[in-house]
Design a protein around this nucleic acid. Structure first.
Lengths: 189, 189
DNA sequence: GGTCTCATGTAAATAGTTACATGATTAT
DNA sequence: ATAATCATGTAACTATTTACATGAGACC
């Protein structure tokens, strides 16, 4: 018998756990999962339909989620997924697994590093564009944080939501501080 | 005639430019490119052999790099690549292109967000592990920065090298600050 | 009539990873 | 001997994206 080849994934799939975790807060459809990710996780997570649907099917085959198809008067049927006990167990185990760091790929820093080959002014322009983006990010995060503090402060999830927002805010501020010390060096260089 | 399908890449390939940029500093082999990336770009970039070699071949087919095979007394032949004029032009143009942000995928923040499903103590453990990693990162970056300031301060590339290190240092410090404000909340919660 | 939202999915494509395969030379 | 480094590449595989395909109902 030929030896089974080991799987050679670029990185293990964490989307599965994102889905399990969201389903733990209540049954939903693929469509609504996508909306949830966009509305609440977008500053640290993302998913596309083309990824969500196949993974839901896989989780179903594996017995980690249950599928209930609702057909309401001829309308396109909603497939509502919910966690099974096996899924809940898998989810709990994931919280103890070591964090898998993404391989870094920072295009801006790559440009800076290779800056000797850059046309004059191009580095400053890249940093300025990045700065504008991060300023916008920071404003959005701070707005959401204020919103949440008044509207959802008594939700059982509020403390965690606030922690993820704080992470974004501190990261954005650090990025801005870096831009502000870097831009002058690029113009006077 | 059937319409040509548009390319559906998950994200455009920036490795090509990383390679072009490194070749702009002088001709090298695939093997040495890998070492360069590991030694000097590792805190913001990475490449594997399985990716480098095929892309070098592609750049060659496209006419952006020149290939010179050296066979020294029967030893495995070194393939030394250098930039062509077309490659140099492509590299210069890249510096003006808009930065493509990576889709965010932060596993730690995902765990925090889904924390209500977490076993007691698991979140704190994840944050503590992350904190240890970032502490280590910071120490390394600060060490390299000091090293460089004494050994390479007069290199024409020194200012840019320092900028990329500063970016890493500020980001690591922000991450540590977040850990330090978050850990107490997780234990007292 | 037109556009937006709800709702499901498949197809085609690339990116990028790990494991495999090969072999010479050099240091321990 | 044996391990490490030099040096090249292919094979198999998964992740993940964008574009395509479809259709109903709601709203303007």
């Amino acid at each position: 018998m030929p030896a089974r080849r080991k799987s050679a994934a670029p990185r293990p799939n964490r989307t599965e756990y994102a889905i399990l975790g969201l389903l733990a807060q209540g049954p939903t459809t693929g469509y609504d999962l996508k909306k949830l990710v966009e509305e609440r996780l977008s500053h640290f997570w993302n998913e596309s339909f083309g990824h969500l649907y196949p993974i839901l099917a896989r989780l179903h085959r594996r017995g980690w989620v249950r599928k209930r198809t609702r057909t309401a008067k001829g309308r396109p049927s909603r497939n509502e997924y919910s966690l099974t006990e096996a899924g809940r167990t898998a989810l709990r185990e994931w919280f103890w697994e070591p964090l898998l760091p993404l391989p870094p790929r920072n295009e801006l820093l790559l440009r800076i590093f290779l800056g000797r080959s850059a046309p004059s002014g191009a580095l400053a322009q890249s940093v300025a564009a990045y700065r504008a983006q991060r300023t916008e990010d920071l404003r959005t995060l701070e707005y959401i944080a204020k919103q949440l503090a008044t509207d959802a402060a008594d939700s059982p999830d509020y403390p965690q939501w606030e922690m993820t927002l704080r992470a974004g805010i501190l990261a954005a501020r650090a990025a801005l501080a870096w831009c502000d010390e870097t831009l002058p060096k690029l113009s006077n260089g």
